[in-house]
Amino acid sequence: MKAHIEKINDVQNKLKDRKECLENLKTLGDKACSSYDLMMGYNAEYYLRSGLVENQILYYQKELDELTKNGVQIALF
């Protein structure tokens, strides 16, 4: 049970991170990208155009939905 809750928390954190990343790409543009990404030619336009971050969000949302489809028991009685 504890491992399941930890998995849910992990996926929730990843989903939140990807959503924040997408928002930063939209608002900050290239400033949201690492210097390494920029050096390799992966700028904000690339990430927004490619749909990479959006696909990661969809993946984590689907994983979270699957993990919580039967509800989540927060504590034992």
Rank of each mutant, 00 (worst) to 15 (best):
G71E: 03
M1G: 11
A3Y: 09
N55M: 02
K16A: 13
K19H: 05
E66I: 06
D65I: 01
N13I: 08
N9R: 11
R49C: 13
K2P: 10
Y42E: 04
Y46C: 01
R18L: 07
S50I: 04
L22M: 12
I5D: 12
R18V: 06
A3L: 02
A3Q: 10
M1T: 05
E54N: 13
A44C: 05
D37A: 11
K26A: 04
T27P: 04
V53L: 04
Y47G: 01
I8F: 00
M40Q: 13
T27A: 05
K19L: 12
E6L: 10
K69S: 06
K26Q: 15
N9I: 15
L28G: 07
R18I: 07
N43V: 10
N24K: 15
L38I: 07
G51F: 07
K31S: 07
K31F: 10
H4A: 12
Y36Q: 06
I5E: 06
K2W: 04
Q56S: 08
K2N: 08
L52C: 14
G41K: 10
T68G: 04
N70C: 09
K14C: 09
L38K: 04
E66N: 10
Q12W: 07
C33A: 03
A32C: 09
I8G: 01
M39S: 08
K7Y: 05
A75R: 15
C33F: 08
E63K: 10
D10G: 11
L15G: 03
L25D: 00
L28R: 15
L15R: 00
Q73D: 10
K16C: 05
C21G: 02
G41Q: 07
D10L: 04
N70S: 13
L67I: 14
R18N: 06
Q73F: 14
Q56L: 14
K16H: 13
Y47C: 00
E20P: 00
H4I: 09
Q73G: 06
Y59D: 14
K7P: 00
D10A: 12
V53C: 08
K69M: 12
K31I: 02
A32L: 04
M39L: 11
Y46V: 12
E54G: 06
D10S: 15
L67T: 06
D65T: 05
Q61G: 06
L22C: 01
C33V: 01
D17H: 14
I57C: 03
S50W: 04
E63Q: 12
G51N: 12
C21H: 09
N9P: 04
E54A: 08
V53K: 02
E23P: 01
K62T: 07
Y59P: 05
M1D: 11
L15V: 00
N24V: 03
Q73V: 15
S50T: 15
E63D: 10
